[in-house]
């Protein structure tokens, strides 16, 4: 039995959310913003409005000094947040505060392993569970390092979401999926976040490839920026992930001193609404 089987999907927010999407016959929108960017209050305000604006699953980036899989937009947002004093501990507080008004929308933390390792894996999982975190995406923890956090997270009842890439061969895919839970995150391009745009036909082929081996929902991310692109992905996958385009809205609203302008929150949420419309206006193919 896979360790992931310990987590009973209907009992998790992620499982319930994807079941609901399936029942509605549509794909979901997954949003990514960086915790504490450009400051704690603004970032919490974005978080508190984002589900209403149309996010079905919320990814929160945990700032790290050396985000080696991220493009310039997310790198800069990460550094801004760190400079303003954002930490993993405060990220958990932020989620706790969000959970007071939303107990339904799944929250997935995305980031790199070192801040979690330094926090302490056991303490982190305990605090993350308590804060209402549903899943983890840790970019630099491939299946080869599953003993570090993936298996303990499953034990603690938190989904560990694996990335699959275009470079993940058919021979390797079962290894990636062995302990995958929650959903599978397909990285649609070979590259870093926010830099290239995926070719929908290529993505469809990869999604098929994963579907043949797994019943988990598949979210597609990296390089999706516009409502049209999100709609294109919504036709072929269970969810579209948009990150850098939202982070760019934050960046654009910064004043010279690096403080958020008055339209930061509304601009981010407006784009989320447009993206959600793109995704929701798209009928899923019957088979998936």
């Amino acid at each position: 039995m896979s360790a992931a089987a310990k987590i009973n999907a209907p009992e998790t927010r992620i499982g319930r959310r994807f079941a609901k999407l399936k029942a509605e016959g549509r794909a979901g929108l997954v949003t990514f913003t960086t915790a504490g960017d450009p400051d704690y209050e603004t970032s919490l305000a974005i978080l508190n409005g984002i589900a209403k604006a149309g996010a079905d699953v919320i990814e929160i980036g945990v700032p790290f000094s050396d985000p080696m899989a991220d493009g310039p937009a997310v790198q800069a947002s990460s550094l801004r947040a760190i400079k303003k004093g954002m930490t993993l501990r405060k990220t958990l507080e932020m989620v706790k505060s969000f959970r007071k008004q939303d107990d339904e929308t799944p929250i997935v933390l995305m980031g790199y392993y070192n801040p979690i390792y330094i926090y302490g894996v056991d303490a982190f999982l305990k605090d993350a569970k308590k804060a209402g975190i549903d899943g983890l995406i840790v970019v630099d923890l491939p299946p080869e390092e599953e003993g570090e956090l993936c298996l303990p997270a499953l034990e603690a009842g938190i989904n560990f979401i694996y990335l699959a890439a275009p470079t993940t061969t058919d021979a390797r895919l079962p290894r990636v999926l062995a302990h995958a839970s929650g959903f599978v995150y397909f990285v649609s391009i070979t590259g870093i976040t926010g830099t290239r745009t995926a070719n929908a036909a290529d993505v469809a082929g990869h999604v098929e490839r994963i579907k043949r081996l797994s019943d988990l929902p598949i979210a597609v991310g990296f390089g999706i920026r516009t409502p049209e692109q999100a709609a294109g992905i919504a036709k072929i996958a269970d969810a579209a992930v948009v990150g850098s385009a939202l982070v760019d809205k934050v960046t654009k609203n910064l004043d010279a001193a690096g403080n958020p302008g008055p339209n930061t929150v509304s601009d981010v949420l407006a784009l989320v609404s447009e993206l959600a419309e793109g995704v929701r206006g798209t009928k899923r193919r019957a088979a998936s």
Partner: peptide, 20 residues
């Protein structure tokens, strides 16, 4: 086999790089 010297070393890289 996973490249560890005691607890050190390993392969902490993104999936895109792992096959390479």
């Amino acid at each position: 086999e996973n490249g560890h010297f005691g607890i050190f070393g390993g392969r902490f890289v993104a999936e895109t790089l792992m096959p390479l």
